[in-house]
Amino acid sequence: MPFPFWITGVPFSWYLILSAVLFTLGVAGFLFRRNIITVFMSIELMLNAVNLSFVAFSYKLGQNDGHIFSFFVMVVAAAEAAVGLAIILTVFKNRQTLEIDEVSSLKN
């Protein structure tokens, strides 16, 4: 790393590190949280982290294809959120709970 990095710009790897950190936190939230909506939001966080690396690589390669991929990711996330939240509403309607561990009637 050249020493006065605040003059030469941001090292490219920082963007990927930020993306990796956010993705890991998303995975952690997905594993630790028990509220189905929070779990869903952790998935959105992971999608965001992936989008960041798409855009960062797009910068590195000098093409805007990465921007288009992340745009598609957003569109699919919107569709996913609509259907997912409808499913959550239905689950809550049937079971009166949002705890992921309680929704396990297929288990035993």
Partner: peptide, 14 residues
């Protein structure tokens, strides 16, 4: 990643 490559605002215009 090679650390020499740095990101500058305004270098990517497309």
């Amino acid at each position: 990643l090679p650390a020499q490559q740095s990101v500058k605002f305004g270098a990517f215009t497309s």
